[in-house]
Computed example of a mutant assay.
Amino acid sequence: MKPTGTRDHLLSTGLRVLHARGFHASGVQDITAAAQVPKGTFYTHFDSKEQFGAEVLGRYWEHRASNAIALLSDEARSPLQRLKAYFASKTRDRAAGPFNTGCLIGNFSAEMATDSRLVRDRLGSVFAAWTSLLSRCIREAQAAGEIRASLQPDTIAAFLIDAFEGAVLRAKVERDATALLRFESIVFSLILT
């Protein structure tokens, strides 16, 4: 379906609602009320709440990916410095916002992976794209001798994502950045050396 102003507004508003409250705790009525549009407008643009959730997740990732690409491809820094800057920016973002929202990717993974094939497939695509972005930079760091070459870049990238998402989840519980700072400290002083 061709994007429209109302459709875009519903996605932007829905992202905020779903990120703050969760998928199952947010009804279509909550989304349309926050967007200040009639409930029927939602179904003009989306076949189901599940489709809407998958599209919201896609929008969230697009924003995250554009930030990641900017940091991970900044040739003014070495590849390892780019990785450090990337995770430091993610920690700053988490610390600046409310800790209770966590990461929409992690939230949807925990909440929707068993309930929705559509969302699970979108999550799989997001994790694959995220892994690819990090893997490219890791490969460059290995070629530059900044990271040991004994592990596959995709394996390292997947581990970093898994560990970071775990740290975000813990930060959500503890409502502070300690887990995120611990992640950065361990990864960049012991693992990626």
Results as ranks from 00 to 15, higher is better:
Asp74Met: 03
Arg122Tyr: 01
Ser89Leu: 02
Glu111Leu: 04
Gly5His: 11
Gln36Ile: 13
Asp93Leu: 12
Ile147Thr: 09
Gly53Ala: 15
Ala54Tyr: 03
Glu174Val: 07
Arg21Val: 04
Glu55Ala: 05
Thr91Tyr: 01
Leu72Thr: 13
Gln29Leu: 09
Tyr60Met: 03
Arg170Gly: 00
Ser89Asp: 15
Pro3Cys: 09
Leu169Ile: 00
Pro98Thr: 06
Arg136Leu: 11
Leu160Asn: 02
Phe52Met: 05
Gln81Cys: 07
Thr131Asn: 11
Glu50Ser: 09
Arg59His: 10
Leu134Glu: 07
Gln152Trp: 11
Val28Cys: 09
Lys84Tyr: 11
Thr193His: 05
Asp74Thr: 04
Arg77Met: 08
Thr178Pro: 06
Val56Cys: 07
Leu72Lys: 11
Thr101Met: 06
Met112Arg: 07
Ser73Arg: 04
Ser185Asn: 08
Met112Gly: 00
Trp61Ser: 03
Ala65Tyr: 09
Thr114Cys: 02
Lys90Ala: 01
Glu111Cys: 01
Asp8Lys: 12
Pro153Gln: 01
Leu133Ala: 08
Trp61Phe: 15
Asp8Asn: 12
Thr41Pro: 10
Thr6Lys: 14
Ala128Thr: 07
Glu146Ala: 03
Ser150Gln: 08
Val126Gly: 00
Arg136Asn: 12
His9Ile: 08
Arg175Asp: 14
His19Met: 06
Gly14Met: 08
Ala33Phe: 10
Leu72Pro: 11
Ala157His: 04
His24Pro: 02
Gly27Ser: 15
Cys103Asp: 13
Leu134Pro: 14
Gly166Pro: 06
Ser48Ile: 05
Ser12Gly: 04
Glu50Leu: 03
Leu83Ser: 05
Trp61Lys: 05
Ile156Cys: 11
Asp93Ile: 08
Leu71Met: 15
Gln142Cys: 09
His45Lys: 06
Gln142Ala: 05
Ala95Ile: 10
Ala177Lys: 04
Gly22Phe: 01
Gly53His: 01
Gly53Cys: 12
Val187Thr: 13
Ser185Arg: 10
Lys172Thr: 13
Phe188Thr: 02
Asn100Tyr: 08
Arg139Trp: 08
Phe108Gln: 01
Phe108Ser: 03
Arg7Asp: 09
Ala158Trp: 10
Thr131Arg: 14
Arg82Leu: 09
Arg59Tyr: 05
Ala65Glu: 14
Pro79Thr: 11
Leu18Gln: 10
Lys172Gly: 07
Leu190Trp: 15
Leu123Ala: 04
Gly22His: 10
Phe159Gly: 09
Ser185Ala: 13
Gly106Pro: 00
Glu55Pro: 08
Asp121Ser: 08
Lys90Glu: 14
Arg117Lys: 13
Ala70His: 13
Lys84Thr: 06
Lys90Cys: 07
Arg7Trp: 04
Ala171Arg: 00
Tyr86Lys: 05
Ala85Phe: 08
Ala158Ser: 02
